[in-house]
């Protein structure tokens, strides 16, 4: 019973991970790409939590959001439109 629910959750989380990873490459605006990267690291943090690794989940959430904030700072420097 519980195993089926865990399998279903894994499928949902992993497929949303793949969807976000594909969506990053289709977005032209670099700001949107940085925000999607934050969503990607949020999903990865959820996966760590499902794998019983809460230590990695905390680090992934903090570092993912932190790097995304820094990337937004860099984006305002180099301009929002990519090549």
């Amino acid at each position: 019973m519980n195993a089926h629910i865990a399998d279903l959750l894994n499928v949902v989380v992993l497929s949303s991970l793949v969807a976000i990873a594909i969506a990053v490459s289709y977005v032209k605006d670099l700001l949107y790409a940085a925000i999607l990267l934050g969503a990607y690291s949020l999903v990865i943090a959820l996966i760590w939590l499902l794998m019983n690794a809460p230590d990695l989940a905390i680090t992934e959430a903090a570092a993912g959001i932190g790097m995304t904030t820094l990337m937004i700072a860099v984006i305002s420097k180099i301009g929002r439109k990519g090549e």
Binding site: D55, A57, I58, T59, A62, T69
Partner: peptide, 29 residues
């Protein structure tokens, strides 16, 4: 909290330091 409870609960100095630093970064943003 995450820094001080690094040896008891998940997290530690790196994650707690990033969270503390992010609060200051958000302030300056």
């Amino acid at each position: 909290y995450v820094i001080f409870h690094g040896h008891l609960s998940p997290g530690g100095s790196f994650s707690g330091g990033i969270i503390t630093g992010l609060s200051m970064i958000a302030f300056s943003l």
